[in-house]
Simulated scan of single mutants.
Amino acid sequence: MTQVNLPVSVRALTAGDLPRCEWAGSSTHLDYVRRALVRAEHGEVAYLAVCPPSDLPVAIGGVDFAAKAGVGTVWQLVVHPALRSCGLGTHLVRACETAVTERGLPQAELSVEHGNVRAHRWYRRLGYVDVGERTEEWDVETADSATARHRTVCTVMRKDL
Protein backbone atom coordinates (compact mmCIF):
# COMPACT_ATOMS: atom_id res chain seq x y z
CA MET A 1 0.00 0.00 0.00
CA THR A 2 1.27 3.46 -0.88
CA GLN A 3 0.76 6.24 1.61
CA VAL A 4 -0.06 9.73 0.35
CA ASN A 5 0.21 12.70 2.68
CA LEU A 6 -1.92 15.69 1.77
CA PRO A 7 -1.93 19.04 3.54
CA VAL A 8 -5.26 20.13 4.98
CA SER A 9 -6.53 23.49 6.05
CA VAL A 10 -9.40 24.57 8.28
CA ARG A 11 -11.81 27.28 7.25
CA ALA A 12 -15.34 28.38 7.96
CA LEU A 13 -17.97 26.15 6.39
CA THR A 14 -20.30 28.07 4.06
CA ALA A 15 -23.82 27.48 2.81
CA GLY A 16 -22.28 27.00 -0.64
CA ASP A 17 -20.39 23.97 0.70
CA LEU A 18 -23.52 22.10 1.75
CA PRO A 19 -24.34 20.53 -1.64
CA ARG A 20 -20.84 18.96 -1.49
CA CYS A 21 -21.43 17.63 2.04
CA GLU A 22 -24.14 15.05 1.35
CA TRP A 23 -21.77 12.46 2.85
CA ALA A 24 -22.18 14.23 6.22
CA GLY A 25 -25.66 12.92 6.91
CA SER A 26 -29.30 12.99 5.98
CA SER A 27 -31.12 16.02 4.63
CA THR A 28 -32.48 16.49 8.16
CA HIS A 29 -28.93 16.73 9.52
CA LEU A 30 -27.88 19.12 6.76
CA ASP A 31 -30.86 21.30 7.67
CA TYR A 32 -29.43 21.49 11.22
CA VAL A 33 -26.09 22.51 9.71
CA ARG A 34 -27.78 25.13 7.52
CA ARG A 35 -29.45 26.64 10.61
CA ALA A 36 -26.11 26.60 12.45
CA LEU A 37 -24.52 28.57 9.59
CA VAL A 38 -27.16 31.27 10.05
CA ARG A 39 -26.25 31.39 13.73
CA ALA A 40 -22.57 31.63 12.73
CA GLU A 41 -23.35 34.88 10.94
CA HIS A 42 -24.40 36.27 14.34
CA GLY A 43 -21.30 35.00 16.15
CA GLU A 44 -23.17 32.39 18.20
CA VAL A 45 -21.46 29.50 16.43
CA ALA A 46 -18.18 28.72 14.66
CA TYR A 47 -18.80 26.06 12.01
CA LEU A 48 -15.61 24.66 10.50
CA ALA A 49 -14.52 22.58 7.53
CA VAL A 50 -11.30 20.60 7.15
CA CYS A 51 -10.29 20.66 3.50
CA PRO A 52 -7.49 19.14 1.37
CA PRO A 53 -6.00 21.26 -1.47
CA SER A 54 -9.20 20.78 -3.50
CA ASP A 55 -10.93 22.96 -0.86
CA LEU A 56 -13.77 20.41 -0.65
CA PRO A 57 -14.83 19.75 2.96
CA VAL A 58 -13.86 16.29 4.19
CA ALA A 59 -14.67 16.88 7.87
CA ILE A 60 -17.10 19.37 9.38
CA GLY A 61 -18.28 20.38 12.81
CA GLY A 62 -18.91 23.30 15.04
CA VAL A 63 -18.68 25.05 18.33
CA ASP A 64 -21.79 26.52 19.89
CA PHE A 65 -20.86 29.48 22.09
CA ALA A 66 -24.44 30.09 23.25
CA ALA A 67 -25.41 26.58 24.41
CA LYS A 68 -23.84 26.91 27.85
CA ALA A 69 -22.26 29.87 29.60
CA GLY A 70 -18.49 29.74 30.07
CA VAL A 71 -17.73 26.86 27.71
CA GLY A 72 -17.67 26.18 23.99
CA THR A 73 -19.88 23.25 23.11
CA VAL A 74 -18.30 21.15 20.36
CA TRP A 75 -20.93 19.40 18.29
CA GLN A 76 -22.04 17.93 14.98
CA LEU A 77 -18.60 16.50 14.16
CA VAL A 78 -18.48 14.26 11.11
CA VAL A 79 -15.68 13.01 8.84
CA HIS A 80 -16.21 11.75 5.31
CA PRO A 81 -16.80 7.96 5.71
CA ALA A 82 -14.01 7.05 3.27
CA LEU A 83 -11.50 9.11 5.27
CA ARG A 84 -12.24 8.10 8.85
CA SER A 85 -9.37 7.06 11.13
CA CYS A 86 -6.89 9.21 9.17
CA GLY A 87 -6.54 11.99 11.77
CA LEU A 88 -9.01 14.41 10.20
CA GLY A 89 -11.39 14.23 13.16
CA THR A 90 -8.57 15.02 15.56
CA HIS A 91 -7.56 17.95 13.37
CA LEU A 92 -11.17 19.19 13.44
CA VAL A 93 -11.49 18.86 17.22
CA ARG A 94 -8.21 20.76 17.71
CA ALA A 95 -9.51 23.53 15.42
CA CYS A 96 -12.74 23.67 17.43
CA GLU A 97 -10.71 23.94 20.63
CA THR A 98 -8.73 26.80 19.10
CA ALA A 99 -12.00 28.57 18.30
CA VAL A 100 -13.02 28.15 21.95
CA THR A 101 -9.77 29.61 23.29
CA GLU A 102 -9.87 32.46 20.75
CA ARG A 103 -13.28 33.32 22.20
CA GLY A 104 -11.62 33.54 25.62
CA LEU A 105 -13.38 30.51 27.05
CA PRO A 106 -11.44 28.14 29.35
CA GLN A 107 -13.20 24.87 28.53
CA ALA A 108 -14.65 22.84 25.68
CA GLU A 109 -17.55 20.49 26.27
CA LEU A 110 -19.19 17.83 24.15
CA SER A 111 -21.54 14.92 24.54
CA VAL A 112 -21.33 11.40 23.19
CA GLU A 113 -24.08 8.80 23.09
CA HIS A 114 -23.66 6.04 25.67
CA GLY A 115 -23.52 3.35 23.00
CA ASN A 116 -20.76 5.07 21.03
CA VAL A 117 -17.85 3.43 22.85
CA ARG A 118 -15.31 4.12 20.10
CA ALA A 119 -16.00 7.88 20.11
CA HIS A 120 -15.96 7.96 23.91
CA ARG A 121 -12.49 6.37 23.96
CA TRP A 122 -11.28 8.76 21.27
CA TYR A 123 -12.45 11.84 23.19
CA ARG A 124 -10.68 10.53 26.30
CA ARG A 125 -7.46 10.19 24.29
CA LEU A 126 -7.93 13.83 23.25
CA GLY A 127 -8.07 14.86 26.92
CA TYR A 128 -11.80 15.03 27.60
CA VAL A 129 -13.12 13.71 30.92
CA ASP A 130 -16.60 12.58 31.91
CA VAL A 131 -18.47 15.20 33.92
CA GLY A 132 -22.03 13.88 33.85
CA GLU A 133 -24.80 12.72 31.60
CA ARG A 134 -27.90 14.17 30.03
CA THR A 135 -30.73 13.13 27.79
CA GLU A 136 -30.66 14.72 24.36
CA GLU A 137 -32.99 14.54 21.41
CA TRP A 138 -33.03 15.62 17.80
CA ASP A 139 -34.90 14.94 14.57
CA VAL A 140 -33.74 12.08 12.35
CA GLU A 141 -34.80 10.97 8.91
CA THR A 142 -36.38 7.51 8.79
CA ALA A 143 -36.01 4.94 6.02
CA ASP A 144 -39.23 6.16 4.40
CA SER A 145 -37.97 9.80 4.47
CA ALA A 146 -40.25 10.76 7.32
CA THR A 147 -38.93 12.60 10.36
CA ALA A 148 -38.82 11.02 13.80
CA ARG A 149 -37.54 12.26 17.15
CA HIS A 150 -34.40 10.45 18.40
CA ARG A 151 -33.96 10.48 22.17
CA THR A 152 -30.79 9.18 23.81
CA VAL A 153 -28.64 9.40 26.93
CA CYS A 154 -25.24 11.01 26.43
CA THR A 155 -22.10 11.27 28.50
CA VAL A 156 -21.05 14.89 28.90
CA MET A 157 -17.30 15.35 28.55
CA ARG A 158 -15.20 18.43 29.22
CA LYS A 159 -11.63 19.57 28.66
CA ASP A 160 -9.72 22.46 30.20
CA LEU A 161 -7.99 24.39 27.44
Results as ranks from 00 to 15, higher is better:
residue 49 A to M: 03
residue 53 P to R: 10
residue 62 G to H: 09
residue 74 V to T: 12
residue 70 G to M: 10
residue 51 C to I: 04
residue 76 Q to Y: 13
residue 60 I to N: 03
residue 60 I to R: 02
residue 62 G to D: 07
residue 72 G to T: 09
residue 81 P to V: 01
residue 74 V to A: 14
residue 67 A to R: 14
residue 59 A to C: 09
residue 57 P to E: 07
residue 73 T to G: 02
residue 79 V to P: 00
residue 77 L to A: 14
residue 78 V to R: 02
residue 64 D to W: 12
residue 50 V to I: 04
residue 75 W to K: 14
residue 64 D to K: 04
residue 52 P to A: 09
residue 53 P to L: 11
residue 55 D to Q: 15
residue 73 T to D: 13
residue 59 A to I: 07
residue 70 G to A: 11
residue 62 G to Y: 08
residue 63 V to C: 12
residue 53 P to D: 11
residue 58 V to T: 08
residue 58 V to G: 00
residue 71 V to F: 06
residue 58 V to S: 00
residue 65 F to W: 05
residue 56 L to Q: 13
residue 53 P to W: 05
residue 74 V to L: 15
residue 60 I to E: 01
residue 57 P to S: 10
residue 72 G to F: 10
residue 62 G to T: 10
residue 79 V to A: 00
residue 63 V to N: 09
residue 50 V to F: 00
residue 50 V to L: 00
residue 80 H to N: 11
residue 73 T to C: 12
residue 63 V to Q: 08
residue 70 G to S: 12
residue 64 D to F: 12
residue 60 I to P: 02
residue 73 T to Y: 15
residue 56 L to E: 15
residue 81 P to N: 01
residue 55 D to K: 04
residue 80 H to Y: 02
residue 75 W to S: 13
residue 53 P to H: 10
residue 61 G to W: 00
residue 65 F to Q: 06
residue 57 P to W: 08
residue 67 A to G: 03
residue 65 F to I: 07
residue 70 G to C: 10
residue 68 K to F: 09
residue 63 V to T: 11
residue 53 P to Y: 07
residue 79 V to C: 06
residue 70 G to I: 12
residue 56 L to H: 11
residue 66 A to G: 12
residue 78 V to K: 02
residue 72 G to M: 04
residue 69 A to K: 14
residue 71 V to K: 07
residue 80 H to C: 08
residue 50 V to K: 00
residue 58 V to A: 02
residue 67 A to Q: 14
residue 57 P to Y: 07
residue 75 W to F: 11
residue 78 V to F: 00
residue 72 G to D: 03
residue 63 V to Y: 03
residue 74 V to W: 10
residue 48 L to Q: 02
residue 56 L to F: 04
residue 55 D to L: 13
residue 64 D to T: 02
residue 54 S to D: 13
residue 65 F to G: 04
residue 67 A to E: 15
residue 70 G to V: 09
residue 70 G to L: 08
residue 49 A to Y: 05
residue 61 G to D: 06
residue 51 C to Y: 01
residue 52 P to F: 08
residue 55 D to Y: 02
residue 56 L to C: 10
residue 80 H to K: 07
residue 73 T to I: 11
residue 57 P to H: 02
residue 48 L to W: 06
residue 63 V to I: 12
residue 49 A to Q: 06
residue 49 A to C: 08
residue 65 F to V: 03
residue 51 C to E: 06
residue 77 L to Q: 11
residue 79 V to F: 01
residue 56 L to R: 11
residue 64 D to A: 14
residue 68 K to L: 13
residue 81 P to G: 01
residue 62 G to E: 07
residue 79 V to D: 01
residue 57 P to F: 04
residue 72 G to R: 06
residue 62 G to L: 12
residue 73 T to H: 14
residue 77 L to E: 12
residue 53 P to C: 09
residue 76 Q to I: 01
residue 74 V to R: 08
residue 49 A to H: 08
residue 71 V to W: 07
residue 55 D to W: 05
residue 52 P to E: 05
residue 75 W to L: 14
residue 76 Q to E: 09
residue 78 V to H: 00
residue 62 G to V: 09
residue 61 G to H: 04
residue 62 G to C: 13
